[in-house]
C-alpha cells in the first residue's frame, strides 16, 4: 500500500517536471520560479488539510521562508530590488505571527 502511494507520487512529480522543463518554452529562471510556485501549492495543501492547529502554523511559518527565495528569484528576473524588500518584510511578519500563534496555542496571554 505504502509502495503504491510512493510510486503514484513519483509518477506525478516526474510528469510535472517533464512538462515544466522540456515541453514549456521559456527562460530558465521562469521555469525555476514555476517550481517554487508548485512547492507553495504543496504547502497550501498542508494548511488546508492539517489535522491539528499546530500543523497549520508550521506550514504558514515554512511558507514565509520559502517566499523569500521566490521573491529573490523574481527580483533577479525583472532586475528590480524592491521585490526583496517585500520578501524581508513578509518573513519578519510570518516569524512574529508564528511566535504569537504558538503563544496562544500554549495557553499563555500575549503580554506574558
Amino acid at each position: 500500500m505504502k509502495l503504491i502511494r510512493w510510486l503514484i507520487g513519483i509518477t506525478i512529480i516526474s510528469v510535472c517536471t517533464y512538462f515544466n522543463f522540456f515541453v514549456y518554452e521559456g527562460a530558465l529562471l521562469i521555469k525555476l520560479i514555476n517550481v517554487v510556485l508548485f512547492l507553495s501549492l504543496f504547502i497550501l495543501f498542508r494548511v488546508m488539510r492539517g489535522p491539528s492547529a499546530a500543523d497549520r502554523i508550521v506550514a504558514v511559518d515554512i511558507l514565509g521562508v520559502l517566499i523569500i527565495g521566490l521573491l529573490a528569484l523574481i527580483g533577479l528576473f525583472y532586475d528590480q530590488s524592491f521585490f526583496m524588500d517585500i520578501g524581508l518584510i513578509w518573513a519578519l511578519l510570518s516569524f512574529i505571527a508564528s511566535l504569537a500563534f504558538s503563544k496562544i496555542l500554549e495557553g499563555r496571554r500575549l503580554d506574558d
Binding site: A54, A72, L88, S98, E106
Partner: peptide, 20 residues
C-alpha cells in the same frame, strides 16, 4: 535575508514545538 532566516527559523521551530 540570509542572516535573517538563519536567526529566526530555528527560533520559530522551537516555539512551535514547545507549544504543541
Amino acid at each position: 535575508g540570509i542572516f535573517f532566516i538563519f536567526l529566526t527559523s530555528p527560533v520559530a521551530a522551537h516555539a512551535i514545538a514547545r507549544a504543541s
